[in-house]
């Protein structure tokens, strides 16, 4: 009897639960179905053929390294800004926060055009550097432009979560503002900064719109997927796409594992 009661209780019909489940499954399906279909429809042969293609490997290497360069340079340059945005109140701060989010809301092809007017051959900067169009550096700049808000916002949230009191205690114990920053604020915000870096890197790797306007060649993998689809059809594009997805997922899993919250961080 008891078991039956338990069962009826846990399976009691509820419109609320049903609607939650239905809507939730819909969203999950939207994400999982195309990815699963893509991976399942690609044979191992096609995949190993793509992996043996020097052009494909070259483009994956370029994509990962350009996004990584963009992320590392933006991290060094962006952390002080994130800290200031977390700690200081000043005139125009709200406007500044809105400006930082601009790259998220503008269409990325438009972002590419905008960048071109600054770093293209005929621009002021371009006349000095010889133009960054068609170069790995130009690709990294395009990736940084569209993805840096993710880093800044995550790092700012990380610094906001550090109680100001801890910094004050550090100062009163005789530490300079520099020392407090490197021994208290930065270590405590580090996890958020790392997840911001992962987000930024991922966003950089996936960038297509801005990158294709700055550089069709050398070819990043998202551009190559587009080019192969256009020139040779679905099957050729598919194997490259799957390869990139597998490599990205593998890297993200490893990085997430390395930057996982420790037991103490969860307690605190």
């Amino acid at each position: 009897m008891k078991r039956v009661e338990g069962l009826t209780h846990s399976y009691r019909f509820s419109w609320f639960a049903l609607i939650l489940a239905a809507l939730g499954s819909g969203v999950l399906l939207l994400i999982v179905a195309p990815l699963a279909a893509l991976v399942l429809s690609t044979s191992f042969g096609e995949l190993s053929q793509a992996a043996a293609d020097a052009q494909v490997i070259q483009s994956i290497r370029l994509t990962l390294s350009a996004a990584l360069t963009a992320t590392l340079i933006s991290t060094v340059a962006g952390i002080p800004l994130s800290y200031v945005l977390a700690r200081k109140e000043f005139f125009g701060k709200t406007a500044l926060l809105a400006i930082i989010d601009l790259p998220i809301i503008i269409p990325h092809s438009a972002a590419g055009i905008a960048l071109l007017t600054v770093i293209g051959r005929r621009s002021l900067l371009g006349s000095v550097t010889g133009g960054l169009m068609g170069s790995a550096a130009g690709i990294a700049v395009a990736m940084a432009f569209v993805s840096v808000p993710f880093l800044i916002n995550a790092a700012r949230a990380g610094f906001l979560a550090v109680p100001e009191r801890l910094e004050k205690v550090g100062r009163s114990l005789g530490a300079s503002p520099w020392r407090v920053f490197f021994t208290v604020s930065l270590p405590m915000a580090w996890r958020d900064i790392v997840s911001g870096m992962i987000l930024m890197w991922a966003r950089g790797i996936s960038e297509f719109g801005a990158v294709i306007i700055i550089a069709y060649h050398p070819m990043t993998t998202p551009v190559m997927v587009f080019q192969r689809f256009n020139d040779y059809g679905l099957a050729y594009a598919r194997s490259v796409a799957v390869l990139l997805i597998i490599i990205c997922v593998a890297i993200f899993v490893v990085v997430r594992f390395l930057a996982r919250p420790t037991q103490e961080a969860q307690d605190a």
Binding site: P163, R165, L166, K168, V169, G170, R171, S172, L173, G174, A175, S176, T183, V184, P187, M188, E264, A265, A268
Partner: peptide, 28 residues
């Protein structure tokens, strides 16, 4: 503050959560 040679103990103690007890005490 760092030039005053004073120390503060707050109501919530404000210990550094990312450091061990010994490193907290040694901070100053």
């Amino acid at each position: 503050p760092e030039a005053r040679d004073f120390a503060v103990v707050y109501q919530d103690y404000a210990l550094f959560p990312h450091l061990a007890v010994a490193a907290n005490i040694a901070y100053g």
